[in-house]
Simulated assay, not measured.
Amino acid sequence: MGFKISWLAFDAIEKAAMLDALGFRDTGEADEANESPFSAVQLRNGWSIIWSNDFEWAATQPVKSSFPTKRAISCQLHEGLMYSATHGADDGIELWSVVHDAQQSLHDLSISGNPPPELLPIKDKLFLDQKSEDAGSAEVDFIFDIPIELAASITGFRHDLWEIDGHRPDWTVIERKSA
C-alpha cells in the first residue's frame, strides 16, 4: 500500500511556536513511527516538522500565508498513485513547486517558479536512473523521488528514514486545540 502522507517544515522556529501558530497542541506522547493522525518534531538543524497521515492535509495549510519564519517547505506523497509534490515559500510567498504525477506520465515532472539550485543535480541523477530502468524491467519510478529528495536536501528530513545524521528524532503526537 505504501505511504499516503504529507508534511510541513518550517525553518528557524521552535516546535511549540509552530504548533501554536497552526492551532495544534503537543500531547507529549511519543509517536516513534508516526502512526497518529498528526505528529511533530524539532530537528537538530532548526527545522520544525508536522507530519500528517492525510495526503491532502499539507496542501490545505497556510504555507503561503504570513508565518513567524522565513522558509517553509511542504511535501505530499502517495505511493499508491505515485504522486509526489514539494512547494517552497519564503516570507509567506510561494516561490516554487516541483510535482510528479505518474497518472499523467511516468516521466511527468512539473516545475514552476524558481526552484532552489539543489533541484538540478537531483533531477539529472534520477532521470538518468529512470532512463537505465526504462531500458530494463521498468518497474521503478525514479521521477517520483525528485520532489521528495529536493525537500530532503533543504530540510534534512525524509519521511522513510528513521535516523537523521545518526540521531532518531523525538516525534510526539499532536492534536488540534479545542475551540
Rank of each mutant, 00 (worst) to 15 (best):
25 R>W: 04
1 M>Q: 10
165 D>P: 06
122 I>T: 06
175 E>S: 06
33 A>K: 14
176 R>D: 07
31 D>Q: 05
90 D>H: 09
17 A>M: 05
133 E>F: 06
51 W>F: 12
129 D>I: 00
145 D>I: 00
178 S>L: 10
68 P>V: 00
114 N>V: 12
120 L>F: 11
126 L>W: 10
125 K>A: 15
50 I>K: 08
71 R>L: 04
63 V>L: 15
165 D>L: 08
152 A>F: 01
66 S>I: 05
96 W>I: 06
139 E>D: 13
8 L>A: 08
165 D>E: 15
171 W>A: 03
50 I>R: 06
81 L>S: 12
69 T>R: 07
113 G>F: 06
74 S>Y: 02
27 T>K: 07
165 D>S: 12
143 I>D: 01
43 L>M: 10
37 P>S: 10
76 Q>M: 11
49 I>H: 02
145 D>G: 04
45 N>Y: 07
132 S>W: 11
36 S>E: 13
123 K>S: 12
120 L>N: 12
100 H>N: 10
153 S>Y: 02
55 F>T: 12
90 D>V: 10
44 R>G: 14
15 K>G: 00
91 D>N: 15
154 I>N: 07
16 A>H: 10
26 D>S: 05
103 Q>N: 13
53 N>Y: 01
127 F>W: 10
41 V>Y: 04
38 F>V: 06
47 W>I: 02
57 W>N: 01
122 I>L: 06
147 P>K: 04
173 V>A: 01
123 K>C: 13
104 Q>N: 13
115 P>G: 01
24 F>A: 01
95 L>V: 13
31 D>C: 09
128 L>K: 14
37 P>K: 09
78 H>L: 09
52 S>P: 03
125 K>Y: 12
9 A>R: 08
18 M>G: 02
114 N>R: 11
112 S>Y: 00
176 R>L: 14
14 E>C: 03
14 E>P: 03
65 S>L: 13
138 A>Q: 10
141 D>N: 15
62 P>E: 07
105 S>F: 05
177 K>W: 00
71 R>E: 08
147 P>R: 02
109 L>D: 04
35 E>A: 14
34 N>K: 15
89 A>N: 05
159 H>S: 13
44 R>P: 10
157 F>S: 01
54 D>N: 14
31 D>F: 04
109 L>Q: 03
46 G>N: 08
169 P>T: 02
101 D>K: 03
77 L>P: 00
171 W>F: 11
113 G>D: 04
23 G>H: 03
20 D>Q: 14
5 I>C: 07
139 E>L: 13
148 I>P: 03
104 Q>P: 00
31 D>E: 09
135 A>Q: 14
131 K>Q: 15
31 D>Y: 05
94 E>Q: 14
21 A>Q: 09
173 V>E: 04
117 P>D: 12
98 V>Y: 04
13 I>F: 08
9 A>V: 11
79 E>G: 05
163 E>G: 00
59 A>Y: 04
169 P>C: 03
146 I>H: 03
102 A>G: 06
163 E>P: 00
177 K>N: 08
172 T>G: 00
60 T>I: 00
69 T>K: 01
105 S>V: 05
48 S>H: 05
172 T>L: 02
141 D>M: 02
111 I>W: 03
168 R>F: 07
10 F>M: 15
